[in-house]
Nucleic acid binder design. Structure first.
Lengths: 105, 105
DNA sequence: CCATATTCTAGACAATGTCTAACAAACATC
DNA sequence: GATGTTTGTTAGACATTGTCTAGAATATGG
């Protein structure tokens, strides 16, 4: 089963799309989910997701920024999408009909 | 932050409504979420949720069944509902626009 | 080359997920 | 009214996930 953070990270990788490496994923989570995590937390989670075959990584080009090492970019695998969909489906089914978490804001 | 199972258990308690003790909660999760957990897992999670003030329990009447000890019935507190709503909102926001399965039915 | 900025890795520890085994209390019955 | 059977709960152990800090690697600019 996917943990809560794993779900969020998978979603963030999907949202970022191309060049989804640590920093953009971290920023997406910070902005969208309002969750203040360290980069280390993101990397650890991405590593674990990769071990489980739910994402795949490849080394990318260095950013054109000031400095820094090569980026490691992630893509969600088919298995990752299936796993994520399954988790979200369970929540949707469990929440269906209850007026919890369905209110906008 | 709520773990994945914690969210599911909270939702199950809400679904069951009156007399939400271990067994019905377990059954609801089994049926609705298709997840095969032991009763021990449910109880442990309920205990932890109570320690965090997200559910409240009271000892209920014994079932009129064959035998059995008194039931401990759970209710989701206001804090529990808030916490749950917050978690689900994050997921909804993260999933919004992606074709991955948390969009309203 | 050396300093510095950026990204990634590793190791530690806390919280959550999960099971098995054991304990407790009601009922039926004899 | 002792006792065994049934149903429900608790406790303890271990695996997985969540999270941080500290440090290593690799670019670029002077």
């Amino acid at each position: 089963m996917l943990g809560e953070l794993e779900q969020i990270v998978l979603l963030a990788v999907l949202r970022v799309g191309r060049d989804a490496y640590g920093v953009p994923v971290h920023d997406e989570i910070q902005t969208r989910a309002g969750r203040d995590l360290t980069l280390g937390t993101i990397y650890k989670t991405l590593n674990r997701l990769e071990e489980k075959g739910l994402v795949l990584s490849h080394v990318g080009e260095p950013t054109a920024e000031r400095g820094g090492r090569r980026t490691r970019c992630y893509v969600v695998t088919a298995a990752g999408k299936r796993s994520l969909a399954a988790s979200l489906k369970v929540l949707r089914r469990m929440a269906a009909g209850l007026d919890v978490g369905l209110e906008p804001t």
